[in-house]
Write a protein that binds this DNA or RNA. Structure first.
Lengths: 218, 218, 218, 218
DNA sequence: AATGAATGAGAATTCATTCAT
DNA sequence: TATGAATGAATTCTCATTCAT
């Protein structure tokens, strides 16, 4: 009984925290305000979490858990590479819309004030997508689906970089404005256009033909 | 005389601010500490800048001016695309090492607490590279150097996304740790390897052949 | 049934309170922690005691009751003065070891934050030993066992002062360290040495001979 | 210039702190109240002292410095033992009246919440009187002025215990009430009576004659 | 009656900003 | 004009006390 109530309350508190942290950043978010918005007293918040920092980390964890579960859904897919790529991009767009706060939380830890946790968090957060993407690329390389002279880890990194930037570009104020500066507001709002362009970019990146090497350097 | 002294002092103050902001984030950086480290009184700082925020923006401006001047250097180059790409990547690596603070400053504004300025800043900051990269790609497209079925603005965006992520990955704690998780510490430290891999990725992305279209969707 | 259970529980609660108050002082002791350690809910504690203060006073009362019962044991003795003195000193040593917490509780009320109750408490607490010691000394004076030119109440006071300081010196951190500074750790730990020295001091104090008056000032 | 102003301010702040700490104890004293009473802002207080604890220790240090300087005055005296003893007792009475707060501060550290510093403080605070009194007694023992079968350190300890209790009995609420319970209000207020009685007690304690040993045990 | 979750006033501490010198 | 001491609002966190279950 207690557990159930507590669980719901916890979720509500966390969501409020996520919202405030995502909105204002860790330092500007105010614990008293969060408590008030969550409809609880500060005392309760401090019963669950030792201090602001732990509370922030708990909010972050929740955000990443949700984002990861979305990622894991994609992984199940057994589509062809290109189809899967497009699905992933669409999932990124969808997630950004539905879970913007989670992505903004994620963006928060990349800033200077979270330096302290960089290593621990990076390992916790990035390991999954790193291994998943790396494996996909290694497999595709073996199948001959993508060029053979590449390092799967590096290409997985570039791939995730592009996806991560898309997430931020859809969710975080600054990145979104930058997106507009580069692509124009119309394009930013045309999801399918973005999907097709990014799919092309990625497809090309992965499937360079040796016969095309003449276009390369030298 | 005052003006001259002031100019030097201003630079010193800004650099100190940049260092502190980059290290601790906007909110945790302490104006009194910055003044002390810069060897001036807070009074002087508040003579030049209305408040912490304006000072931060001044520091940011300086950071971006330096980063932009580095970018402009690259632009002059008249190398072939691939050569130029590699040069740009090397420049990114060099800049990240030499001007990590500027890049960390840049990263700061992507976080929640700077939301307020997102639009103004994005326009100021991103316009240059957006237009430069877009033009390059448009030109290359016309020359037939890169595939014809792409939107230059979108591809410029993806291109800059990758470069931006590289900058952060070399300069910002979290991104650097993520870089290691994806690629391993050895690769992270092997600059030339990274150059070659990213160059391949980009080269491929841009030079997809129409004969390969069968791999595409539909 | 409730009453019986309650009595035992009460004792346990009080002992837990005494332990915490003695350890941390009234203000730093935490009612919630005490309740938890006593295995009850704070609600129960507040059923018995109106507030922290009353609870502290109840703990204090219990401490003093125990200490007084020890004192009363001594009083029964019909030994000669010096023997009795030595017995009392040994009792002080024993009590300090066995009931350090009670003594530390006693010490607590001498500090500034208990000012409020000073008068009431002093009367409750000190009356017994004051009257007992005063009577002893008055009797001894009449018997000619101790010098005749003294005020029994004053000498009882000095006597109790010395015993009280010994109690604190054996039980309370600061006094114990002071004890070491004055006497050295070896002496502090040599109970019988302390007994003999203090007995000598007291014996002398009480049995000054009129023939020695020449050594006194006028 | 700065130093001078600061020194005065510091003294004022310390005196206010001493007054509040002596009155309410460390934990109940309120830093904001102290600042207000001292006519400064909390900011200034925290410029001088890292936290409440350091501020308390600074107040304590000042108290002890004053008390020690009073003690050192006594030491200079070259009177005969008994005369000196009486002078010391009168000094204790005077100090208690004039510097009650300092003595109450001293009393504060004997309570549970200062446990942490017990050892360091005891060594700093008690060493002086311990060595001074011990030397006096050792000298007097060699001169044959006091009985030969005693340990000078122990007797110095008992002597200081009595003086310390007198200080507290004149300055601290609880001890003062206890003083009254033992001796009656009239005696408590009759300084010369107390002097004469305590002098007698001490004189006796120190000058026990060997011819009286028959009163001793065994 | 008993519980212990919840409350929220209160206290310590920080730091952007001001202003007397 | 420059200084940096002083300000005090704001924020985090604690814990005695209450009260719904």
């Amino acid at each position: 009984m207690f557990e159930k109530l507590s669980e719901e309350k916890k979720t509500e508190i966390l969501e409020t925290g996520i919202s405030e942290f995502a909105e204002n950043g860790v330092d500007r978010a105010n614990i008293n305000v969060i408590a008030k918005k969550a409809g609880i007293s500060v005392g309760v918040l401090y019963k669950y979490y030792a201090d602001k920092e732990s509370f922030f980390l708990a909010c972050l964890k929740r955000s990443l858990d949700v984002l990861n579960s979305v990622l894991l859904e994609q992984i199940k897919s057994s589509d062809k590479p290109l189809v899967r790529t497009e699905k992933i991009i669409r999932a990124v767009q969808k997630t950004s819309r539905e879970h913007g706060n989670y992505i903004r939380m994620y963006n928060e830890i990349t800033a200077g004030s979270s330096k302290k946790y960089a290593q621990v968090l990076a390992e916790k957060i990035e390991s999954l997508s790193a291994s998943v993407y790396t494996k996909y690329i290694a497999d595709a390389k073996e199948n001959g689906d993508i060029r053979g002279d590449i390092d799967p880890r590096m290409f997985a990194f570039f791939f995730d970089n592009l996806l991560m930037m898309m997430q931020f570009s859809y969710s975080c104020e600054y990145y979104r404005e930058r997106f507009k500066v580069f692509c124009g507001e119309a394009n930013v709002n045309d999801d399918e256009f973005v999907v097709s362009q990014l799919a092309k970019f990625l497809e090309s990146a992965f499937t360079f033909r040796s016969s095309d090497i003449k276009h390369g350097e030298k």
